[in-house]
Design a protein around this nucleic acid. Structure first.
Lengths: 127, 127
DNA sequence: CAGAATCCGCCCGGATACTG
DNA sequence: CAGTATCCGGGCGGATTCTG
């Protein structure tokens, strides 16, 4: 006996692109982690995130700013731009940490499953 | 005084594409939700996920299977394919639920921030 | 210093049509 | 029934070069 699904549960549903905000962004989690202990300037973010090109980093920052996760404050003399977590961003960062924690705890399981699956399908195409 | 970042924290880091597994997949969360109360056949999944084309649904299912989140069992006479959550998949589903919960609780905040940001930048380009 | 401009390749989501 | 085959458009990540 199968339990029925709510009939209209998925009528106006939010796909993953909407629901887990910023979790589709490749570098957003790392940006949040960089800002966890305090505000950082653009060039300070570029050091730990050296593998991210300026174009990509800027876009991630803008997206996080648009969603109210970080603030961007400009001041001249000296010219500097400072990024800082908002309370909302801090909350997201903590959620993100729980996700990373989950991943770390189940990482081996996942790798094993992936390896088994790939082995299974390699022989299927090899034969 | 800024707290320093761990120097090699991001040397071999995992970007978001790896860490929050399946969270980049647009429909994965809904698939997990559909399988929460028990196993479902392919055609049973297609009903609530009517907006997802077979090609896309199949790919999501394969990806989830590869990562050990669901199992796919085939039996003929009658011809049927059954998808079922693994314990790991169940665990991921619960994590996903907490993410959705967080989103629901902060959704208004996010929309407000987004609206304010867009308004701010609309006048910048209009001028 | 903090990006912007330009260009590119890839993958993903989607639509449509077809099949063992 | 449970997919596969083909094609398409868009967006994202990335590399490189340039600028107020």
């Amino acid at each position: 006996m199968r339990e029925p699904l709510p009939p209209d549960m998925f009528e106006e549903l939010c796909p993953s692109g909407l629901v887990p905000i910023r979790f589709g962004d490749k570098w957003a989690g790392l940006v949040l982690a960089c800002l966890r202990t305090g505000p950082r300037r653009y060039s300070e973010l570029r050091v730990p995130l050296a593998r991210v090109t300026p174009r990509v980093l800027t876009r991630s920052l803008r997206a996080l700013e648009r969603d109210g996760m970080i603030t961007r404050t400009v001041e001249q003399s000296p010219p500097r731009v400072e990024y800082r977590l908002t309370p909302l961003g801090h909350s997201l960062m903590e959620l993100y940490a729980t996700v990373c924690d989950w991943t770390a705890r189940h990482w081996d399981e996942l790798l094993d499953a992936r390896e088994a699956y790939d082995a299974e399908h390699a022989e299927a195409t090899a034969r």
